[in-house]
Design a protein around this nucleic acid. Structure first.
Length: 764
RNA sequence: GCGUGCAUAGCUCAGUGGUUAGAGCGCUCCGUUCACAUCGGAGAGGUCCCUGGUUCGAUUCCAGGUGCGCGCACCA
């Protein structure tokens, strides 16, 4: 590029590629290099953001582009403001999401499942896919101009992060915050794994509510009489697993039955039913009596636990019946339901059938209908009080690698739930827009223990080893009384000696994501980065992962670091299509950010995601908008071109001879600068960007340039020099203020006028 | 059920206790020896959802209503 020549047309793609290279070569994405070269003071205040690591499941979408645009605005602004600014890149292995993607691919292409390949071969396939996705994603992030410090790139599944995961697991286990428990969990028959409460998506469906009686009493004084209480259910097939009928303690209708036990017939099987009183029963729902199926309902499981009732599993991992006569046994639950209803109907036991709508729990990733099953799984105990400093560790024989420093000055007994609540309630974490704090508290209040084990292969293997138990019993054991802990060895490295087997399960992907704000700085090592950049200044992400991720980071950080993970959370909206639907590949309604960047430039794509998007509000994006902002970057280019064409009037001593008119321009500009600065500081990026847009186009180009144009043509030499000087000054000033929003075109223009300097590293 | 967001131009959305409420796209008319046709100029287009309150003044703040959306819980 000839420095003084402006091509009449601005070639976005060519220019943007060149400029990103220029930035990368300057090294200024790295705060250490900024400090070495005097761009920032070595002791300047730090500003740090971690990039929410994109999943290595494929490619970036518009949501990622929005996130990158907003974060890059903050990062570039603070860097120009002289802060030691660090933005750490990385990717997330995304356990279930990635594994199921590869499984689908292999099934389609080779007609094989993961078991056909074996654990090792399958994992090498997933890793290859992950690597490929990673490379694509990194290329795409760069294409959009994100000023990330690539020398610090991390991956949730790399060795450093894996060590952090094992360390965290061990520390929490030792403090009793991680337990292996037998509970009714959310089983996804399609994905063949347990999932957490947050990975459930409820779908409203119409279904039938049946009111009926089990059948005849089989023994005792009331033999051959009908069971005295009718119950209501939407899932009659599960009633083979019933062990009790629960009623409300104050229910006059049923009080008299409380404590009685019956042997009763049900569809050819025999049930032993105890009638119990429990506060959790709604008197007004159905008959007011609830058939308790401990093994196949989370709520019933809890009731059973309270009353010491047995868990009777009658549905297997594939959602098939393991009991019943020939019309039921081995059938899927939906078919079995029909069969059971038919049997009940024939026996004239059904009293009522009514249509109701209910929320069906489905798995977020696979869409499978959740089948609650009792299983032995690892849980993070959010309601269990612990004392960070003096509290007991149950493996004190093994020295702590990283001491838990939980989030309280006094060494009080606190629960993780309380720590999570305190972090936000105390104001140590501020969530923007503020309304999300309420949503956060609401979620916290309803939080149950977090099931962290998954029966999939891709992910962090649980760092627990067993001796003298075979895998089969690990998965099927249902005996509550059996003491578990003594049989485990939980540590960061495998135990010595023979005969140890590692738990076959892996961890929920959000376990490692939860550590991200400090694991990226190589925790548990006490690194300089950890000291400088943790807690992070800001965490920026979409509001859809407030619970999945933000809450988990707060949990992990307050527990393990004794500190909040970040001071501010800024939530952006979701990017939707012109009809308001969430953009997704399967719907085919997505606008590809890279395609837009190629067509209209990364600058225009970014600006379209910032202007018109109020914090936390969804963005409806259309290609027209992006095209509109492409026109803006062309406009900027032509403004600069015009000014450059008059550069013969540049005064030799560089001094600006201002007149009254020019004073007004400068005053106006100063006002603009302080407004834009305030907007960025207040996370009102859309306002800052829009003001720059209006100023550059409708004030600077339409009014100021048009006025000075006259002077440049017909003025005296001094007038021409003055006009040129003011135009150049306002142009370069504007380029600075616009740079965080449109980094490429502003840098390109800057290079024409100040080729010896890089705009990115200029003072704000 | 609890909570929460939105309602502004034809469309998609910003914004504001005070003169004339803005952007992108779309629409009408005019313009190309001009930095810019990826453009410029001019213009049409608004009951700022309804009702009430606070106020000198409300599209903006408050309450209620209507419509649409979202989160959580329940879901036998």
């Amino acid at each position: 590029m000839d420095e003084n020549e402006f091509e009449p047309r601005y070639d976005h793609v060519k220019s943007e590629e060149k400029i990103y290279k220029l930035w990368e070569e300057s090294g200024y994405f790295n705060p250490d290099i900024c400090a070495e070269n005097g761009v920032t003071a070595a002791d300047a205040e730090p500003f740090s953001i971690i990039l929410p690591p994109p999943n290595v499941t494929g490619e970036l979408h518009m949501g990622h582009a929005a996130m990158l645009a907003v974060e890059d605005v903050m990062v570039r602004y603070h860097r120009m403001n002289g802060k030691r600014t660090l933005w750490v890149p990385g990717t997330d292995h995304a356990a279930i999401a990635t594994q199921s993607k590869v499984e689908k691919k292999i099934l389609k292409e080779e007609k094989k499942n993961r078991h056909d390949l074996g654990r090792e071969e399958f994992l090498s396939r997933v890793n290859a896919f992950a690597q490929e996705s990673h490379d694509t994603i990194v290329r795409q992030i760069k294409r959009l101009g994100a000023s990330l410090d690539w020398s610090r790139e991390a991956y949730t599944l790399d060795e450093t992060r894996s060590r952090a995961v094992r360390t965290a697991f061990k520390e929490m286990y030792d403090r009793g915050l991680i337990e292996r428990n037998f509970r009714v969990v959310n089983w996804d028959p399609k994905g063949q794994t347990v999932i957490s409460d947050d990975e459930i998506v409820y779908e409203e469906r119409k279904t039938k509510l049946y009111t009926f009686r089990y059948g005849k009493i089989l023994s005792g004084p009331e033999k051959d009489k009908l069971f005295p209480v009718a119950i209501s259910t939407t899932r009659p097939e599960t009633k083979f697993g019933d062990v009790a009928v629960a009623i409300h303690p104050d229910d006059e209708r049923y009080k008299k039955f409380a404590g009685k036990e019956y042997d009763v017939a049900f569809c050819g099987a025999a049930l032993h039913i105890k009638i119990i009183a429990d506060q959790s029963v709604e008197k007004d729902f159905g008959t007011g009596a609830l058939g308790v199926t401990p093994a196949h309902s989370v709520i019933d499981g809890e009731i059973a636990r309270r009353h010491g009732l047995p868990f009777k599993q009658i549905i297997d991992e594939y959602g098939k019946m393991t009991v019943g006569g020939e019309t039921v046994y081995g059938k899927k639950t939906a078919e079995a339901r029909e069969a059971v209803v038919a049997l009940l109907r024939n026996a004239n036991l059904i009293e009522k059938e009514e249509e109701i709508s209910q929320n069906v729990a489905t798995a977020e990733r696979t869409g499978g209908i959740i089948e609650p099953l009792p299983k032995l799984q690892w849980f993070i105990m959010v309601n269990k009080p612990f004392a960070a400093k003096t509290g007991k560790r149950h493996s004190d024989a093994v020295p702590a690698k990283a001491e838990i420093r939980a989030f309280n000055e006094k060494d009080e007994e606190r629960t993780l739930k309380e720590l999570m609540r305190d972090a936000v309630e105390s104001g140590k974490v501020k969530i923007l827009p503020g309304r999300f704090e309420k949503i956060y508290f609401n979620w916290i209040d309803n939080l149950r223990d977090w099931c962290v084990s998954r029966q999939i292969w891709f992910g962090h293997r649980i760092p627990a080893w067993y001796k003298d138990i075979d895998d089969e019993s690990l998965l099927t054991q249902t005996d509550l009384a059996k003491e578990q802990p003594e049989k485990f060895y939980v540590d960061i490295e495998p135990p010595e000696g023979d005969g140890w087997q590692q738990d076959p399960d892996t961890l929920d992907t959000w376990f490692s994501s939860g550590l991200w704000p400090f694991s990226v700085f190589n925790w548990p090592d006490e690194t300089a980065d950890l000291k400088n950049y943790f807690p992070n200044s800001v965490l920026e992400t979409g509001y859809d992962i407030l619970f999945f991720w933000i809450a988990r980071m707060i949990l992990m950080s307050t527990c393990l670091m004794g500190e909040v993970p970040f001071h501010k959370v800024y939530l952006h909206g979701l990017v939707r299509d012109a009809k308001g639907r969430k953009m997704s590949k399967s719907k085919g309604n997505g606008i590809d950010p890279l395609e837009m960047a190629d067509k209209y430039g990364a600058d225009a794509t970014r600006l379209s995601l910032i202007i018109g998007a109020a914090p936390g509000n969804d963005i409806k994006l259309s290609e027209d908008r992006i095209r509109g902002y492409r026109n803006f970057s062309t406009k900027i280019w032509n403004i600069a071109r015009f000014i450059m064409q008059n550069s013969e009037w540049r005064a030799e001593n560089g001094e600006m001879k201002k007149n009254e008119r020019h004073e007004i321009y400068l005053k106006e500009f100063e006002a603009l600068k302080s407004e834009v600065t305030a907007h960025i500081e207040n996370f009102e990026f859309h306002l800052g960007a829009e003001k720059m847009y209006r100023y550059i186009w409708h004030t600077f180009a339409d009014k100021i340039i048009e006025t000075e144009k006259e002077n440049l043509k017909n003025g005296t030499e001094a007038e021409k020099a003055a006009s040129y000087a003011i135009l150049e000054s306002l142009l370069l000033g504007s380029m600075k203020l616009l740079h965080p929003f449109m980094p490429f075109v502003t840098e390109a223009v800057w290079r024409k006028f100040r080729p010896e300097k890089i705009l990115m590293a200029e003072k704000w």
